[in-house]
Design a protein around this nucleic acid. Structure first.
Lengths: 200, 200
DNA sequence: GTCTATAGCCCGATAGAC
DNA sequence: GTCTATCGGGCTATAGAC
């Protein structure tokens, strides 16, 4: 990669990061390209040298995020794991992604439901479908091998667990007081072993 | 109440309902007063006969919603219930509110975090603090009487349960195929008894 | 009480100098 | 590659006729 190309990618990355921070806190539509330019030290018009439109910035953020997330799930070797370990791996990959990329996580969950029917989001839709099937398959495997109870519908349990995991980016403080592996332990304790106190 | 007063309140209610539907799906900032007027069959300027501003519509929606929700919790006689029954009552009141007022539920959860620091939201802040303390007290009571395990922090369990309950408005279909009391049963099954399969 | 018309502002995006 | 300047348009809110 040449020096000029690296500089361009650096600028692009700066713009994406600045836009992500603003989109995550105020929403895409409520964020102006002027604000994005201000954050990155560029006049509004100059942004259009790197991106054709504001919505292209949002789309690149979301599709890049989803592609990386799917790659992380695939790299976790889920197929070789027993259901409980597989669910733990899914939760851990997700929590790590939420902690590493909180802005994109918030944007995806807050805005994608309204964007998924738009043109240029076909690939993102495919990725989200595959991610969902990864979660659902792990829960089904747990039911099949007797690890999980069968009277709670798979889709319902999926929603409960999924929301607990992803929405933790809104309340977890990213400091030493509550490390990620503790959150992971608490999440798996509640959802796999249950909150009920059963002295053994 | 005079006929004129009732008519005014009817118009006000129509405007609030139309605004709620739009705010819930597109967000407050992304919704224009022209759209609200269109929905209710009024020219944009005429809305200002009933509300001083767009943000006043949003504030009335949120504060009214929160006041009613708090009243419902108080009417449920929570203090006289054992911890498990108390948590079930809290979940049931919340699910019923979500089903009866899905738009305001979505608006509150999506927009209040960004609005709570604003002027004119002092009362809403007090109400949310009290609602949160109702949930936390029920969980603490469950720990105190040995019903709930103590190794998962109260605030963490609260977030998991709260998000599962409230965000169900985004995915639950409001038809006969999945009635509210089934959702309530599944929620309490997962969070109170645990998803783990323990043949007894 | 609802209308038409518009003020004043900010928006996304573009043109063209340098 | 970044700037200044601006276009065309939608926004919230207001003014004043009816």
């Amino acid at each position: 990669m040449t020096t000029e190309k690296a500089a361009v990618n650096g600028r692009r990355a700066d713009i994406l990061a600045a836009a992500a921070a603003l989109f995550a806190t105020r929403g895409i539509e409520a964020t102006s390209v002027r604000e994005i330019g201000e954050r990155v030290g560029l006049n509004p018009g100059a942004l259009y040298h790197y991106f054709p439109s504001k919505s292209a910035i949002a789309r690149d953020l979301i599709t890049g995020y989803l592609s990386d997330l799917l790659a992380d799930y695939r790299a976790a070797g889920l197929d070789g794991l027993e259901p409980r370990a597989r669910l733990k791996a899914i939760v851990d990959v997700s929590l790590a992604t939420g902690a590493a990329r909180p802005d994109e996580t918030k944007i995806y969950h807050a805005e994608f439901p309204n964007l998924r029917r738009m043109r240029d989001y076909e690939h993102a839709r495919d990725v989200t479908d595959e991610i969902q099937s990864i979660w659902l398959a792990a829960i089904e495997a747990g039911k099949d091998d007797g690890t999980l109870r069968r009277d709670v519908p798979t889709k319902v349990f999926h929603r409960f667990l999924r929301d607990a995991v992803w929405f933790s980016v809104y309340w977890r403080k990213d400091d030493e007081s509550y490390p990620l592996d503790e959150l992971s332990d608490h999440c798996l304790a509640v959802f796999l072993d249950g909150m009920a106190n059963r002295p053994s």
